[in-house]
Design a binder for these strands. Structure first.
Lengths: 354, 354
DNA sequence: TTGTACGCGTTATCAA
DNA sequence: TTGATAACGCGTACAA
């Protein structure tokens, strides 16, 4: 007497197998197949072998989507980069993926292009993916983003920079201090006139932080900071113009040393120096930032700072894994991983006696 | 007289809202909230406004995981890169994300490090995510990978290279032809002795393809190909050693032109040339590949090939979007998008009269 | 070691 | 325009 229930059309996609298909073929229940993947030791060796063969034969792959929904813990970690295509962030990404891959976690990437608003958008999108953790690459979020992060209840890592008094894990190095370190490198050699050159495109706010550190160090030494900004977008060209301008001014008036905000600007200066009759480092000492592959091959070889890019990405991922393994409550104190940003002294930064 | 059903503990996570929470607050059913996001025009303006306010207030974000499972169409596109941290692949990734982001599609990345086996692993992992499309960066997959791809029933794009007779969409350029183009550039200037220098680390098989194209062009001109391999890993160092070796051999014996497999090797040669007393391009003409930012600033400026990296990534994503929009059956002929790889002639490649 | 029942948060289908 | 119901594919809780 059963009223025939209206038969719903199955929404299943053809071609794709499910855990039930495997179970049916093996003559076991689907939960056994689930255990085969998630805790194989709870399945008898005989069944295990039978399942292995069937899974291999039909090419079954468990659905991450269904699994993530059912368990409430998807295998996803999200990261917001500031400029995916730059060497810095590409190296960070490689460090993260190398580390996460082994744990079966997928990295979801977004690109914020140094914009706080784009970062907020990315975070909002990521919330919908219910990630296990979030990796960011700045610490000055929009209020809305900051509110979302605090409400999230998952590990949040701020990588690349390294600041005090944040509620989130820090993995990186303090940028301002590295700027100061370069300044002192020149001051200790007796230089008094040291300039800092920022790129015209100001989106990389870390460069500004390094300039700030430089300014502090200069002031502390009783000197006047001399921060200038390039007048062209292309970093190499900016460096070339800088050295040309120096060549045109009398020796007593020009800086004894120039700190470029990045290696490309410094490389532009070094490559163009012969054309202006500037002999480096005798006529002017130089330093850069980033330890670009070419910096050691320039003549003179470029003094620069070497941030542990790959290692920061790796450590950010490792911190995520540690927090997930520890089931750490978000209340516990955030991790603080200080990674090296080494001063690499080469020929370009030798200050000539006045 | 209802037998009290054993009350199951809810597995819901605290803090996170669901579509039902929103529905309850608004006094509508959950499907209406679903419609608010997926087809707002089917919801009355009054309800729409009420929902907007509530969603904003509690910070609700729809679950991509649940939505993907229910609809069978997750908002995911997967891409397998060969070396995430290299400028080439970083630019490709940026092109893809820029294009996909606007469509609300998430890019899942994997790194195969030029290994076919790692690529197969990545594809297998990606299958579990039920992506809407797959973007690969080579065309010579393992048999198992090839089988998976053919069974997948989603758009598959092979980007960066560009070959014939593949069942998948092609977006890129033919690498062998660009090698031949460089060879002809020198042959047309009257050079007879032209060398091709490969990096020692042979993982970038595209360089090998360019060398092959070079060899064909040389043979076609009745000349003997001269493909050599660097004896150090560092590309700059390899270039420097090459120029030093040339300087040590008599002019009649050494090549009139050298094609370096990438710009870094060529840059190493140019930077080291003055130290060996080599005057470029008079003593030897040079060319590279990749149009690195520095190539135009070297002295002499480097002749090189400029692949449309970003545009290839962009076009790969665009092809994916087109196929998804068209609901194209996998049977229809694959797209073929040939993107430019322009020869950029600068001073370094001027061949001196014999 | 294996199985049953149900829930995860959303969307497709059908009905009103 | 709105809603009730079932289904997506899997994991958890509990029972056997």
């Amino acid at each position: 007497m059963n009223a025939p229930k209206p038969q719903r059309a199955s929404r299943r996609k053809a071609g794709s197998h499910t855990i039930h298909d495997v179970a049916a073929l093996a003559g076991v229940s689907s939960i056994t197949v689930s255990r085969y993947f998630n805790s194989p030791d709870k399945v008898s060796a005989a069944v295990r072998e039978r399942l292995r063969e069937i899974i291999e034969r039909i090419g079954y792959v468990p659905s991450q989507v269904a699994g993530g929904l059912a368990s409430g813990r998807g295998r996803v970690v999200c990261a917001v980069m500031q400029n995916i295509a730059s060497a810095t962030f590409a190296d960070l990404v490689k460090g993260m993926t190398d580390e996460l891959q082994a744990s079966g976690l997928q990295l979801l990437l977004a690109n914020a292009q140094y914009s706080r608003d784009l970062e907020e958008n990315a975070i909002r999108t990521f919330v919908g993916w219910h990630p296990r953790a979030l990796i960011l690459t700045r610490d000055d979020h929009t209020p809305a983003a900051e509110a979302m992060l605090r409400a999230l209840d998952i590990p949040v890592v701020e990588a690349w920079g390294f600041v005090e008094d944040r509620p989130f894990h820090q993995v990186g190095f303090p940028h301002a201090q590295t700027g100061a370190e370069l300044a002192r490198h020149f001051l200790e050699q007796g230089a008094r006139r040291v300039r800092f050159l920022l790129p015209r495109v100001g989106e990389d706010f870390r460069a500004g932080q390094r300039a700030h550190g430089y300014a502090i160090a200069m002031t502390a030494a009783g000197l006047v900071p001399d921060v200038q900004t390039a007048d062209v977008d292309d970093d190499f060209e900016a460096g070339a113009r800088t050295i040309a301008a120096l060549a045109a001014s009398p020796r007593e008036a020009r800086p004894q040393a120039v700190i470029f905000a990045n290696d490309n600007m410094a490389a532009g200066a070094i490559l163009h120096a012969p054309d202006c009759g500037m002999r480096l480092p005798d006529d002017c000492a130089l330093a850069g930032f980033g330890d670009a592959p070419i910096s050691v091959h320039l003549k003179p070889a470029l003094t620069t700072l070497r941030p542990a890019r790959y290692e920061i990405g790796q450590m950010a991922a490792r911190t995520v894994l540690r927090m997930l393994a520890a089931q750490a409550s978000p209340e516990s104190a955030p991790c603080r991983e200080l990674l090296p940003c080494e001063l690499v002294v080469r020929d370009s930064s030798r200050v000539s006696p006045a």
